[in-house]
Design a protein around this nucleic acid. Structure first.
Lengths: 230, 230
DNA sequence: TGCACCAATCTTGTATACAAGACTGTTGAG
DNA sequence: CTCAACAGTCTTGTATACAAGATTGGTGCA
């Protein structure tokens, strides 16, 4: 939760969530070591931790790369999120006392409001970041730290998927879903919230063009597009 | 999946699942390096990966230790498993084609049979190992590699919990639950299987004495008990 | 005796050195 | 001109060296 302790990992993850690091990007140990002002040792440690979390992978003696989920992996990641998030919401009604922690609904409502604003200002980076954060906040509200961590990593993965398969997923529609879920939660209709969450994640997944093989030259094309600086 | 690549991690995990490594056990880098015939570097890498998976933790300049889940963490780990495993089973009916992979039910049936035999022979180590493996196999049958990995680690955690809070959880009752789940799956009654799974995990959790603080001297007492070698 | 202080030892934390493989660009033959 | 072979460079893989903190055991004072 704090900044200094493992800032390399958090830094990479937030760069991914914010769309500043694209799938397939190479992360050289030496470069990162220089950026963070530490030796390669600590960079390697951070990379390995990120690897076990499924965020980056290593190609032997070539370097570390932000993962590029295949279509199969993409589907699996969304399925995993669907299973866990709907399971979480459905579990709420079995917890008579716990329910959601404190002012969770109020926080979520405020978050959805933030999403709305980001939609209007149109800042694409913070927009996708906020849309992903909603699910993490929801997990946090549920109060199970294990599930929160798991969903944080899965969300990072699906964010990468969205970047790869260029969904024109209506950000507005997503935010509407989020608002609907919060409303149902406020009413205590957990089963309904779970159902809507299921539809929501399916909708996002269906918005992706998983049939289209990811273009390995995407980055290159962008650079070579007319108007690029010499 | 293969043996040689990351055998240190797998070795530690299987030692935990098999009850050969107890919570709180210290894992010295130098010792492990000698055992595995490598330098401390690789041991450290393995430990860090296990740390991000929540299996071990490091105490600054004191060493690596197998985690000792607190009562709160124990409850959270069981809740996470319940959410995910029931969510998985409930999701089966929404997958018209997929359902369970191939001969999964047959495999699970065979596994339950193995459990029964282990119960009779009474080998305690392999027994707890098998009872945990059932859930991992079930996840594998579902076919989502992410969920399989997640549940593997969560199961390792709950195994540690069971060791700490000395549940007299009837192994026989657990195995009966497993058998019941397999039967319901074979009948295609996924909702029923999910319900039974929910009860099953609750039962195991309730069998634990989470109120009893774990005894930090357990290992010592055992060594000093009458009959121990000089 | 009881306790505070201190030195010796051990263990992890971090950096660095070197080995091994992958990629790049050049060169020379056909 | 095309392409195969090769040397050079770059990057990761692994080990080792040293620094920093923790623990332990001993010593001396009250």
């Amino acid at each position: 939760m704090t900044q200094p302790p493992d800032s390399i990992e958090d830094s990479v993850i937030s760069a991914i969530l914010g769309g500043r690091l694209r799938p397939g990007t190479r992360l050289g140990e030496a470069k990162l070591a220089e950026v963070y002002g530490v030796s390669r040792t600590r960079v390697r440690e951070a990379m390995m931790r990120l690897e076990t979390r499924g965020i980056v992978h290593v190609s032997a003696r070539r370097g570390w790369f932000v993962v590029e989920p295949s279509a199969t992996e993409a589907r699996a990641a969304f399925q995993a999120r669907r299973v866990i998030e709907t399971g979480m919401l459905r579990d709420l009604h079995t917890l008579p006392e716990h329910t959601l922690r404190g002012d969770a609904v109020a926080h979520l409502r405020a978050h959805v409001e933030e999403e709305r604003e980001a939609l209007h200002t149109g800042h694409v980076g913070s927009r996708t970041c906020l849309l992903g954060d909603f699910h993490i906040h929801l997990a946090h509200a549920f109060g199970n730290p294990f599930l929160t961590d798991i969903l944080r990593d899965l969300t990072a993965r699906t964010t990468l998927v969205s970047m790869l398969y260029q969904s024109d997923q209506d950000a507005a529609a997503s935010s509407d879903d989020h608002a609907g879920i919060v409303t149902l939660l406020a009413d205590g209709d957990y089963a309904g919230a779970a159902r809507l969450m299921d539809e929501h994640i399916r909708r996002v997944e269906d918005g992706l063009d998983l049939a289209a093989a990811p273009d390995p030259l995407a980055g290159l094309r962008e650079i070579l597009s007319p108007g690029a600086p010499a």
